[in-house]
Amino acid sequence: NKEKKVFISLVGSRGLGCSISSGPIQKPGIFISHVKPGSLSAEVGLEIGDQIVEVNGVDFSNLDHKEAVNVLKSSRSLTISIVAAAGRE
């Protein structure tokens, strides 16, 4: 599966507009579980089932849900590497 990078700058009070969840035991990782229509996440093409592999240089493969949320909230400017639809297989 091809990795792609998206860049998101949080402007004003707009949030990311997506929710994440941890994958099942047999498929660990952090996946996008919800994308709000019209949100920044939707605008850059994030979709439900995409796996987040890295954010701002932080490897997401071994993070738990709480740590992942903290990384996503730690910066107003995010570089997110995803594997599209990895969670839909």
Score class of each variant (00 low, 15 high):
1 N>I: 15
2 K>P: 06
2 K>N: 08
2 K>F: 09
2 K>M: 12
2 K>Y: 06
3 E>Q: 13
3 E>G: 11
4 K>H: 07
4 K>F: 10
4 K>G: 04
4 K>P: 00
4 K>T: 07
4 K>D: 06
4 K>E: 04
5 K>L: 05
5 K>H: 05
5 K>M: 06
5 K>C: 06
5 K>R: 09
6 V>F: 13
8 I>F: 07
8 I>S: 10
11 V>F: 15
13 S>C: 08
13 S>I: 05
13 S>N: 15
14 R>Q: 14
14 R>V: 07
14 R>T: 11
14 R>N: 10
14 R>F: 03
14 R>W: 05
14 R>I: 06
15 G>R: 09
15 G>Y: 07
15 G>L: 06
15 G>Q: 14
16 L>C: 03
16 L>T: 03
16 L>A: 04
17 G>E: 04
17 G>I: 02
17 G>R: 02
17 G>W: 01
18 C>Y: 03
18 C>P: 00
18 C>W: 04
18 C>R: 01
18 C>N: 00
19 S>K: 12
19 S>M: 09
19 S>G: 08
20 I>V: 11
20 I>L: 11
20 I>G: 00
20 I>K: 00
20 I>N: 00
20 I>Y: 04
21 S>G: 07
21 S>R: 14
21 S>N: 10
21 S>E: 13
21 S>A: 14
21 S>L: 10
22 S>W: 05
22 S>V: 11
22 S>R: 11
23 G>V: 05
23 G>N: 09
23 G>C: 06
23 G>A: 06
24 P>S: 14
24 P>A: 09
24 P>E: 08
24 P>V: 08
24 P>H: 11
25 I>R: 11
25 I>L: 12
25 I>N: 14
25 I>E: 10
27 K>L: 06
27 K>P: 05
27 K>M: 09
27 K>H: 14
27 K>G: 05
28 P>N: 09
28 P>M: 05
28 P>S: 08
29 G>N: 03
29 G>E: 03
29 G>K: 02
29 G>R: 00
29 G>L: 01
29 G>D: 06
30 I>S: 02
30 I>A: 03
30 I>Q: 04
31 F>A: 00
32 I>L: 05
32 I>R: 02
32 I>P: 01
33 S>M: 05
33 S>F: 01
33 S>D: 11
34 H>W: 10
34 H>K: 10
35 V>F: 00
36 K>N: 11
36 K>Y: 09
36 K>G: 07
36 K>H: 11
36 K>W: 07
38 G>T: 04
38 G>I: 04
38 G>Q: 08
39 S>F: 02
39 S>Y: 00
40 L>F: 06
40 L>P: 15
41 S>D: 02
41 S>H: 02
41 S>Y: 01
41 S>P: 03
41 S>T: 06
41 S>C: 09
42 A>Q: 11
42 A>C: 07
42 A>E: 15
43 E>W: 05
43 E>M: 07
44 V>T: 06
44 V>D: 02
45 G>S: 01
45 G>Q: 01
45 G>A: 01
45 G>V: 01
48 I>R: 11
49 G>Y: 02
49 G>N: 06
49 G>T: 01
50 D>L: 00
50 D>R: 01
50 D>F: 00
50 D>W: 03
50 D>C: 02
50 D>N: 04
50 D>A: 02
51 Q>P: 01
51 Q>K: 12
51 Q>W: 01
52 I>T: 02
52 I>V: 07
52 I>Q: 00
54 E>H: 06
54 E>S: 15
54 E>Q: 13
54 E>N: 14
55 V>N: 02
55 V>W: 00
56 N>S: 07
56 N>Y: 12
57 G>V: 14
58 V>A: 14
59 D>S: 14
59 D>F: 04
59 D>G: 07
59 D>W: 03
59 D>P: 12
59 D>Q: 08
59 D>L: 06
59 D>H: 10
59 D>M: 07
60 F>H: 04
60 F>M: 11
60 F>C: 06
60 F>K: 03
60 F>N: 02
60 F>E: 01
60 F>D: 00
61 S>P: 08
62 N>H: 12
62 N>W: 07
62 N>C: 10
64 D>Y: 11
65 H>R: 11
66 K>H: 15
66 K>V: 11
66 K>T: 11
66 K>P: 07
66 K>A: 14
69 V>G: 15
70 N>S: 15
70 N>T: 05
71 V>I: 10
71 V>A: 09
72 L>F: 02
74 S>Y: 11
76 R>Q: 15
76 R>I: 08
76 R>G: 11
76 R>H: 12
77 S>D: 14
77 S>Q: 14
77 S>R: 12
77 S>A: 12
77 S>L: 07
78 L>M: 10
78 L>F: 07
78 L>D: 04
79 T>H: 14
79 T>C: 10
79 T>L: 10
80 I>K: 05
80 I>W: 00
80 I>C: 08
81 S>W: 07
82 I>N: 04
82 I>Y: 15
82 I>M: 08
82 I>F: 13
83 V>Q: 10
83 V>L: 14
83 V>E: 08
83 V>D: 07
83 V>H: 11
83 V>K: 13
84 A>P: 15
84 A>Q: 15
84 A>E: 15
84 A>M: 09
84 A>I: 05
85 A>H: 11
85 A>N: 13
85 A>Y: 06
86 A>Q: 14
86 A>R: 13
86 A>Y: 10
86 A>T: 14
86 A>K: 13
87 G>H: 11
87 G>W: 07
87 G>R: 10
87 G>M: 10
88 R>C: 13
88 R>H: 14
88 R>M: 12
89 E>C: 11
89 E>Y: 08
89 E>K: 14
89 E>M: 11
